[in-house]
Amino acid sequence: MGLPAKLLGTGEQELLHLRSHGKTMIKPTIWLVVVAALFGAVFAMLPVGWRPVSGWVVTLLAVALAIPVYLLPLLRWRTTTYTLTNHRLITRSGIITKVGHDVPVSRISNVTYERSLSDRMFGCGSLVFTTSAEAPVVLYDIPKVEEVGVAISNLLFGVRA
């Protein structure tokens, strides 16, 4: 699902719509499993005479801890998108407060990518856009970063696929 048509200008076409690679959810998922195991062990050690009230208390505490540990990173990941059109690079993020940044394609002077060892294992990387007026725009953990970089370079230098 890309940007709604009402957010695109006249004659503007969406070329790519991306979000960060799912690898960004590995740590939150591990923490969620740890929280579940910890609270499961606590629940198992509670005296039977304290149940069911103690079970509800433990469950509420586990859910309260799972929200910042897993749910917020998941929502952050789902609400952060990167869209490339034939006119601009559009970044959107935010769960409650939405933040957007648009860079005209004509202002992008260089596209580079960076891939760490873990990025190479997961098939992703970071794209760095150097613009003529601003600090570089960095898009982290982009899937198939080399292919995306080539597509963007083709757009910038006028090569049509």
Rank of each mutant, 00 (worst) to 15 (best):
G2A: 11
L3S: 15
A5D: 13
L7W: 14
L7Q: 14
L8W: 13
G9V: 08
E14G: 14
L15S: 05
H17D: 02
S20R: 09
H21M: 01
G22D: 00
I26A: 08
P28Q: 09
L32I: 11
V33N: 00
V34G: 04
L38G: 13
F39I: 09
F39Q: 06
G40Q: 02
G40D: 00
A41M: 12
P47T: 02
V53S: 12
V57D: 02
T59F: 15
L60R: 00
A62E: 15
A64C: 02
A64K: 00
L65R: 11
A66P: 14
I67G: 07
P73V: 07
T81N: 03
L84W: 01
T85D: 00
N86G: 10
H87T: 13
T91K: 07
I95Y: 04
I95M: 02
I96H: 02
G100I: 01
D102A: 12
P104N: 13
P104G: 10
R107P: 08
I108P: 10
I108F: 02
S109D: 06
V111E: 10
T112E: 11
Y113W: 05
E114V: 05
S116R: 12
S118K: 07
D119H: 14
D119A: 15
R120F: 10
G123K: 01
C124Y: 01
S126R: 13
S126F: 08
V128L: 04
F129P: 09
T131L: 04
S132K: 11
A135L: 13
P136V: 00
V137C: 01
V138T: 15
Y140T: 11
E146D: 10
E146S: 08
E147G: 10
E147L: 08
V148K: 15
G149Y: 04
G149C: 03
V150Y: 01
S153E: 14
L155H: 04
F157P: 01
V159N: 12
